[in-house]
């Protein structure tokens, strides 16, 4: 177990129906503080005020997609160490390779199983911090 506590999640998703089920799941099973955004652009505007422990983000979104938003986070030293998980249906091998290249902490495939979502997030969270500790 890492010493890092996962409390606040910035959840970026444009589909209202998936937002609803995702938020219920994250709050009920993860007991996380969940802050919602509808696009990468909105996430970029809110992220510093929210100061999340983790960003859980869709890839295909209007205004600004997940990849562009993540690349913007990486440019900013205040944000570059915040782990980002992509939650997407676009998860073919070449797509996941592309996400890994830009430094995503993990990928969760949509449609997701609500019961499995928080364990999947926690697993990615633990791996991310284990890797980070070894690097340091």
């Amino acid at each position: 177990m890492s010493d890092h506590i996962l409390k606040t999640v910035l959840y970026v998703e444009d589909d209202k129906d998936i937002q609803t089920i995702g938020k219920i799941t994250l709050e009920s099973f993860g007991n996380f503080n969940v802050v919602m955004c509808n696009s990468g652009k909105e996430a970029l505007e809110k992220i510093k005020d929210v100061n999340p422990d983790l960003v859980l983000m869709d890839v295909m979104m209007p205004e600004m997609d997940g990849i562009t938003a993540m690349l913007e986070f990486k440019k900013d030293t205040e944000l570059s160490e915040i782990p980002v998980i992509f939650m997407t249906a676009k998860a073919q091998v070449h797509e996941v390779e592309k996400y890994n290249k830009i430094g995503v902490a993990g990928v969760i495939i949509k449609p997701f199983d609500p019961v499995q979502l928080c364990p999947q997030i926690n697993e990615i969270w633990e791996k991310f911090h284990a890797k980070f500790t070894v690097r340091v």
Binding site: D15, D17, I18, I21, M60, A89, K110, P111, F112, P114
Partner: peptide
Amino acid sequence: IHKLSGSSAMFGFSELG
């Protein structure tokens, strides 16, 4: 339909998904 495909299975409508 992309959105419907993503959300319906999560709400338990597997055939619709």
